[in-house]
Structures are given as C-alpha cells and as structure tokens.
C-alpha cells in the first residue's frame, strides 16, 4: 500500500453542492468533495451513478446548474471546455477518443498544441518560432513516449493499434500537456491482468515522478484499493461515501450499494 508513504498537499480542487440535470434526469445531486495536491483520488460507483458526468463537470464539458468549483483558489462554474486545458487539466475518456486518422506521434503532439504559439503564417513558412517549437515539443513528446514505453509504435496510425496500446497512447496524449490535474475515466477497462498491472505502474509513476494529481474512475476494486489515497463513492448521482480505501471497504452503505459481500 502506497497510501501512507506518499505526501498529500493542500486542496487544489474543491466541488461544493454540485447539481447537474439533463432535463428531468438528475445526473448529480448535491455533490461535494475535494482533491488534494499529489493524491490519487478514485471515484467509484455502479454504472450510471454519475461518475463520468462528474469528470465532465470538472473539466468544463458540462455546466452544473448549481454549486461551485474551486480550482487552485479560483472559483468557477461555467467555462469553455478548452479553457480547462489551459488551466492544466487533462483527461482520458472511457471510450477511447484518439484521433484515428493520425499517427501516435501526431496524437501526442496534439496534446501539446496549447504550448505552441506560432501563428499559422510562421508555420506555413516553417521558420523561426514555428520550427523551434516543433522541435522543442517533439523532445518533450519523446520523453512521454519513453516514459510509457511506446517507442516502437510512434509512427503507426492509432487506428491500427490494439485496444490496450490505444489506451496507453491516450494517456500519453494527456500527459504530453504536462497537466497538474489528470482525470482518468476507466483507464483499465477491458484490459487483462498484465495490461492492468502496466497501467497501474504508469499511473503511480506519473503521480510520483511528475507530482501530478490524479482523479480516477475505475471498476476494478483491487486496483482502486491499491493505488488510491482517498475514494469517493457515488450512487444514483449522490455521494454515499468518502474516505480512505479502508474506510470505504468497511462502510455499510457502500457495501450495500456497490461492493457487496462475499458469500
């Protein structure tokens, strides 16, 4: 268990009384929780509990009707999706959302687009800043490629890769942005045991080496209990539990709603 060994810092993200509804469907009602710097925060719950909606609220895809979000001391409720990226929030998706027509390298380079400021005219002539930025960012991207051990596929179009590698490329694309907060939506769904182990290792390495705060949705309880510092449990859009893995494991409401008992 890595829990005790790692340091957790101040609260970087604080959600207060978030409610989100789509028409008559209440996806989230009155959710409050916080995320501390450097921690791995897991969100668990049955299907349809509102986990992905919660991530979408955090990075600005959905705008909650009620409640406030504090990120790094700034309060916000509504913002454009692309602004979240500028503030250092990156994410991966439950269903792989890679750019299928592009190579692995181009996908990951796209993750660094925000760091390229050359105008299209400079890029068209390929001089000065445009050229320099391409090379600098390529170097950073290669670091991420090395880190995630995907050197051998960097020139492959992502559509041709197997599922497990696509998931890894998606993580690489998110990491390339050098985010301070990384949202992972079921990074290990559909993987076999070895692939899950690899992915866990990468997630923990990211957390330790880069000091990235991680919010993660996962269904594999073994994984969640092993790698996360604190866990939030959702059910039907409501928060039913919040605490360390040990607390959650012994929380009767959570056991009833989600974990179940061994028979």
């Amino acid at each position: 268990m890595a829990t005790a060994a790692r340091k957790s810092g101040d609260v970087v993200l604080k959600l207060e009384n978030i409610s989100l509804a789509f028409g008559g469907v209440k996806a989230l009602s009155d959710i409050s929780f916080d995320v501390r710097e450097y921690e791995v925060r897991a969100i668990i719950g049955p299907n349809g509990a509102g986990k992905s909606s919660l991530l979408n609220v955090i990075n600005g895809v959905y705008h909650p009707q009620q409640g406030t979000i504090m990120f790094r001391g700034k309060q916000r409720r509504d913002m454009d999706t692309h602004e979240a990226a500028a503030q250092g929030i990156a994410r991966t998706f439950q269903n792989i959302a890679l750019f299928r027509g592009m190579t692995v390298l181009d996908n990951i380079m796209t993750g660094r687009n925000l760091r390229m400021n050359a105008t299209f005219i400079e890029q068209a002539i390929w001089v000065g800043r445009a050229r320099r930025e391409e090379l600098e960012n390529r170097r950073k991207v290669e670091e991420v490629i090395d880190f995630l051990e995907i050197q051998h596929i960097r020139k492959t179009p992502v559509g041709r890769l197997p599922y497990g590698l696509q998931k890894r490329v998606e993580l690489a694309r998110a990491l390339a942005a050098e985010p301070s907060l990384l949202l992972l939506d079921e990074p290990m769904a559909g993987m076999n045991v070895e692939e899950k182990q690899d992915m866990c290792r990468f997630v923990l390495d990211v957390n330790e080496q880069y000091g990235t705060t991680i919010v993660l949705i996962e269904h594999d309880m073994g994984v969640v209990m092993d790698i996360s510092d604190r866990v939030v449990v959702l059910d039907y859009g409501k928060k039913i539990g919040d605490g360390t893995p040990d607390n959650i494991r012994n929380n009767q409401t959570v056991i009833d709603a989600y974990l179940g008992v061994a028979h």
Binding site: N59, V61, D80, T81, H82, E83, A84, A85, A86, A90, R91, F93, A97, L98, F99, R100, G101, M102, D106, M109, T110, G111, N113, L114, M116, A118, F120, Q123, W126, A130, E133, E134, R173, A177
Partner: peptide, 24 residues
C-alpha cells in the same frame, strides 16, 4: 505543424480536441 494537427483533431474527434484545449 500544430495548426494542421488541430484541424485533424477536430475532424477525427471534436470533443476530445476541445478537451485538449483546441478552440473550436
């Protein structure tokens, strides 16, 4: 270069492109 990648990103998966920070 980055503008071309932004175009292709929007072509291939516009939601993901926006989440990455590409202004639509």
């Amino acid at each position: 270069s980055s503008i071309g990648r932004a175009w292709m990103a929007i072509r291939d998966m516009d939601v993901a492109a926006e989440v990455i920070g590409i202004p639509m």
